[in-house]
Every structure is written in C-alpha cells, then in structure tokens.
Write a protein that binds this DNA or RNA. Structure first.
Length: 415
RNA sequence: CGGGGUGUCGUAUAGUGGUAGUACGCUUGCUUUGGGAGCAUGUAGUCCCAGUUCGAUUCUGGGCACCCCGACCA
C-alpha cells in the first residue's frame, strides 16, 4: 500500500473528546474514526489489525474443533421469551427495534437462544455431539455510558463460540481445554505475560466462570493475583474465603497483590439453562432423550485491539507487536530515492511481505519519520540518498529505535 | 440513570451584543528534503430550533451531541 493512495491521514493533535490512550492514538494515526460515543469505524489500517487478531483467533478455534458460522443481527423476540430474557428487567442494555408491522426485534447482544433454536434442526442423536460452532460478529449493547475508547463500545466486534456436549463430563474436558486455547491466543497477541486466568462468578448458570484479565491501568476491573507462575487470579468481586476454599487455594500473603485489569475474554459453563428453556434434546445410546449440556466462550476482538494499544505505545506513538501489525514493513523513501525505493517496494511485495510504502516526494524527512513512528509498524526500512548510492539501506526497529545499515542484497535474506 | 462540564473552519484553540482571529491541515507557486522546513498565495467555521433585540456566535428557553465522576456492565 502506497501512502499517497491511502486515504487516511495522520494528525498532529489528539482529539479533544477522547481521554483513553487507545482512542487518542488510533484516531491520531488514522486507524479508526469516531462516529458516535462508543461507536467507531475501522479505517484501512485499523481493519488490517482487526483482521490479524481475528485470524489468530479463527485458527485457534478451528484447531480446537470449532466450525465458523455467521448468525443474524436481527433477532426473534419469541425465542428470547422462552428463556425469559426478552424482558428489560432481565437484560437492560439491549437495542431493540420494530418491523414495519410493529413486530419487535432485538439487535444481537449475544446469541445463545437463536443458536440453540437453530441447533434443534441439527442435533438429534448422541452421534451429533459434541459440536462447537462460533462466529465473529458485531455485537450491540446499549451501554449507559461508553468509555475507554474502543474497549467499551455500544457496537463492537466479538468472537463467540458455543459448545454443545452430551453431558457435564464431556463439557468439562472441552472447557478445560479452552482455558489453554485462550492463553495460547493471548500469548500470540503479545499479551501473555500480563494476562491471567481469573476466577469469577458464573452468573446465573454456574457457581464460577473464568475471565481472562490483562493487567493495565486502563482496565475497569480489579483482580487479585494468586499465583504468578500459573497466571491465576481471582476477580475482586469474588475474592473471599469461600472461593479460595472451593478451588483449594492457599494465599501467599507476600506475593498476593491486586491490579487493575482489562477483561479480554471469558468462558462460561451454561449447563442446561438454554437447552431446557428451548427444549434442545438428543437421543442417547439407550434410546432415551437427554438435554444438551452447553458452554459459551467469548473474546472481544475490538477490545483486544484497544488493550494491545494500551500496552504497546510510547511518546512517539503506536508500537505494534509483529503478529498484529497492519503491515510487515514500513518502507520510507527519502528525497531523490524514488526509483530505488520503487524497485525495493516491488521486490518486497513480490516476496510476500505486506508493505506500507511512504512514497511521498513532496514531504520532508521529519514528517515521514514521525508518521512512521506514530503508525507503529515494527520494522522500518529507510531509503536515503547517500546510503543507496553505496547500495545500502537502513533497517530501524520501531520499539528500540535501533538502526542497522545493511546492503540491499542482504535485505531480503535478513527479513 | 444521578451529578458536573463543553459545543467556534478538517484538527487544535482565542474572542466578541455590531466585519470571527490564530496555529496546523489543504490549494497554487518558488525554495527546500536524514527528525513535523521557509516565503508568498488562496481555502474553509460560530451544533439545531425558538425567544429577547435595530442587530445574537455571544443573552434566555428548549432540543441534540460530546466529555468527566458515580451507578450499571449476561
């Protein structure tokens, strides 16, 4: 992608109506646009990051046996009435709308009920189980107050997987496996060191659930870190004698500490709550009907992007981990190097690298360097007049600002 | 949802009951080009509706939007 063709622009000033670091930096550098409070558009650079994160999650879900689907945003009131969740007293942050004929509809804030209803068409025998459908989709939640930039929006991108198992034992095996799958995802996203598997209440479904909490001052939750090695924590709300006893945990008062954190994912055992409400049954080996045992597994993709920004930036701008960077390389052509830079750009693209190419010839060096640091792609290749005459280029590491001078020939091998 | 605050070119801001200014951006031209370069040139704005007034961007009322604190956050 050539910067002269990229429609998004960087700014010198941060927007006055954002206080969160993630929104300030992402708007300043042209990754997102604020449409309304808590509602953001993803511009070309931002969408590339979203897609990188989505693909890492998608691969892990597929490896764990997931099958990707895409459900509807518009939802049928009748299905939700069966589980008693349509009532505003049950769910108060739901956007609802109407058909022309006045029929009420919901805008998807989660998808247990419609999916269970759908699965009645596909689950009838024990041979059909277990199954793990998931989707990556925009969710809508009518938050009373949007805040924290893209980390708490009224409209956000989420991966939600649902497990359908024959019984609790089969469910538990998968549930335990998902804890590891989730940590693997956060490791790949560069958040592994700061992310804790966190014991939390299970809502109305089970006594406990697990959240995945990434330590950051930008977070809205507080966790107590129980075991640094095992990356285990307990949510402040559930930090008590009973929880410790239930999990057989002994407190080490010397290492115990509390931290602010961002909830980047959660997994719940739903049990029979929805299969009973909507009558989702299968026939077992003995020919008898049984209810399906369920779980659900969420990750906020847009929130993850915000969390990654909160943890990876400096006074010059964004510093993307390689795995989620919108491009592999930021190629900068300084003055009078257009021909050389064009050749190198073509060669890099031919070799399969994704490259953001600053091909502006009417822009001063300082602007290009500052924009590159602001945009935050991990590797910068700088083509300068003096160096290129010696057949050399510079490779700069965005994070360390360290510059290496190498020959053009060795460039492709080094990368 | 309770409390507080703010709305001025694309962005960040100043100011005023009587011609709305600055910086950045953008246009055009020239000079520049290794850390947001210089000179010149042009461009563009008072959130919406109503009221008071000879005259409202300014005052009053209503609306809408945005921000902050709290509550809420299957």
């Amino acid at each position: 992608m050539r910067i002269t063709k990229l429609f998004s622009k960087t700014r010198k000033d941060s927007p006055k109506d954002e206080t969160s670091k993630n929104a300030q930096l992402l708007i300043k550098s042209g990754y997102i646009h604020k449409e309304l409070a808590g509602v953001y558009t993803y511009l070309p650079l931002g969408l590339r990051v979203i897609n990188k994160i989505s693909n890492i999650i998608r691969e892990e879900m597929d490896n764990a046996g997931g099958q990707e689907i895409l459900m509807t945003v518009l939802q049928d009131k009748n299905i939700w009435e069966k589980s008693k969740r349509w009532d505003d007293n049950a769910v108060d942050d739901w956007f609802k709308t109407r058909l022309k004929n006045n029929t009420e509809l919901g805008l998807g804030f989660t998808h247990e009920e419609p999916l269970v209803n759908l699965m009645k068409n596909h689950i009838s025998s024990y041979k059909d189980l277990p199954i793990y459908p998931y989707q990556i989709q925009t969710k809508f939640r009518n938050e009373l107050r949007a805040k924290s930039g893209i980390m708490r929006g009224r409209e956000f991108l989420m991966k939600d997987m649902y497990s359908f198992s024959k019984n609790k034992e089969e469910h538990n095996l998968f549930y335990e496996k998902m804890k590891e799958v989730y940590m693997s995802i956060f490791n790949q996203l560069g958040l592994g060191d700061k992310t804790y598997t966190t014991i939390s209440s299970g809502g109305s479904f089970s006594k406990y659930s697990y959240e995945f909490q990434t330590v950051s001052d930008a977070g809205e939750d507080i966790i107590y870190i129980i075991d640094q090695e095992k990356k285990l924590a307990i949510n402040e709300d559930d930090f008590n004698e009973e929880t410790l006893k239930d999990f057989g945990l002994n407190l080490n008062k010397e290492t115990l500490r509390s931290e602010k954190s961002i909830e980047v994912g959660d997994i719940y055992s739903l049990g029979y709550r929805y299969s009973k409400a909507l009558n989702l049954k299968y026939t077992n080996e003995k020919g008898l009907d049984e209810f399906v045992y369920m779980g659900c597994y969420g990750i906020g993709i847009s929130r993850l992007m915000g969390a990654i920004v909160e943890l990876n930036s400096d006074d010059k701008g964004l510093v993307w981990p390689r795995e989620v960077s919108p491009f592999d390389i930021h190629l900068i052509s300084l003055s009078k190097t257009e021909d050389y830079a064009n050749k190198i750009y073509d060669e890099l693209v031919k070799r399969g690298f994704s490259v953001l190419f600053d091909d502006r010839q009417d822009t001063t060096t300082g602007v290009k360097f500052n924009d590159a640091d602001l945009i935050g792609i991990p590797k910068q290749i700088i083509i300068g007049e003096k160096r290129i005459k010696n057949n050399e280029v510079e490779i700069k590491d965005r994070k360390t600002q360290e510059i290496k001078i190498i020959s053009v020939d060795s460039l492709y091998d080094l990368l």
